[in-house]
């Protein structure tokens, strides 16, 4: 194909997206579109399954049966979300094995927030409230993204996600209104998870390299800084409502902007964690690699059995 032809196709392609048409798996797409989507979607999927680990940590120790089943269901949903997203990414021409390999070798990233440890039960509340809260802010706009399979996966995810945040906030609310010890637990968890949650919305706009292209393809609707501001503005009143204090001495309502001013984020910490030096990076990857490698004989057995059954049926037919 000549450069001229490709330019034409690209122009038509971009026009389709501007008309709010969806791109489906077999449609022609610029190589950059394919690669960018593979990267974003697979990293989204990796985040879901790595995200199972910090919360899965507290399943056996949930303080009540009701909390236990809710947490089990939430973590299970995350596995499901990973699955929807991996499946959607596979439509772009990459296999599940390749994606796992990228995750396990560090070639692909996942949301850095999951490299923090869950130290107390209250962390379950903080994660549901803050981390899922931030995730929802990112995810709702994606329900309308240009790539069909991604949009459909996100619609499913968002439907299920709303229970996650409510569950988390309910946990925090109960703690904050409980005994002094419980309130301490809640405040302590908020102290530890607040800043990482802000960082979860990504680096500052000036350090974010992919934004413009992503906006055109509806992979991104708002900039990182805008999303961060939205998150803060919606969350601070929630904390006020349950009597918890956001751990930011510079947090202040700005009447002119109609938004909260907030203190400086420790970007060194962010980049340190992203580069692999957070508190739990090694453990998270070890767990995922372990599960995959220890499971190899199981997956092989299932294939061998399936082949045997298929041959048996073939022989019967003959």
């Amino acid at each position: 194909m000549s450069e001229e032809q490709i330019k034409n196709l690209e122009a038509q392609f971009n026009a389709r997206i501007e008309r709010d048409e969806k791109i489906e798996p077999k449609d022609w797409m610029p190589e950059k579109y394919r690669k960018t989507h593979i990267r974003q979607m697979s990293q989204h999927a990796h985040s879901e399954i790595v995200g199972m680990l910090p919360e899965g940590n507290w399943i056996t120790r949930a303080p009540s049966l009701r909390r236990k089943v809710a947490l089990l269901a939430k973590v299970q949903d995350e596995a499901g979300h990973g699955l929807y997203l991996y499946s959607a990414t596979e439509t772009l021409g990459i296999s599940r094995e390749e994606m796992y390999e990228q995750l396990h070798t560090g070639k692909a990233k996942y949301s850095s927030i999951f490299n923090y440890p869950t130290l107390t039960w209250a962390d379950m509340g903080a994660i549901g409230w803050l981390v899922d809260g931030a995730a929802i802010i990112n995810q709702v706009p994606l329900c309308n993204t240009s790539y069909g399979p991604y949009a459909r996966a996100m619609i499913r995810v968002c439907k299920e996600e709303s229970f996650h945040q409510r569950q988390g906030f309910e946990i925090m609310m109960k703690l904050a209104k409980g005994t002094p010890e419980q309130k301490d637990l809640a405040q302590d968890a908020l102290n530890r998870w607040w800043w990482p949650s802000l960082m979860m919305l990504g680096p500052k706009d000036e350090e974010s390299i992919h934004t413009e292209q992503s906006m055109k393809w509806k992979l991104k609707r708002k900039s990182n800084d805008d999303l961060r501001q939205q998150f803060i503005d919606q969350t601070v009143p929630q904390a006020d409502l349950i009597g918890l204090t956001i751990p930011d001495p510079e947090l202040k309502w700005n009447k002119e902007r109609g938004s909260y001013d907030f203190g400086p984020i420790n970007w060194d910490e962010f980049w340190q964690v992203v580069k692999g030096y957070g508190p739990c990076n090694k453990e998270r990857i070890k767990a995922r690699v372990g599960a995959w490698e220890e499971g190899e004989w199981v997956r092989d057995a299932a294939m061998a059995y399936a082949d045997k059954q298929a041959n048996k049926n073939l022989n019967k037919a003959v």
């Binding site: 236990k68 089990l72 973590v75 299970q76 596995a79 372990g290 599960a291």
Partner: peptide, 28 residues
């Protein structure tokens, strides 16, 4: 419940968790 996140595949993870949820439902 201990297995959540550590299964040989995502699909079996979801299946084992489903069983766990059924069992806890019965317990309740």
């Amino acid at each position: 419940g201990q297995l959540c996140g550590h299964g040989p595949s995502l699909e079996t993870d979801i299946a084992c968790t489903n069983i766990s949820l059924d069992l806890f439902g019965q317990v309740r």
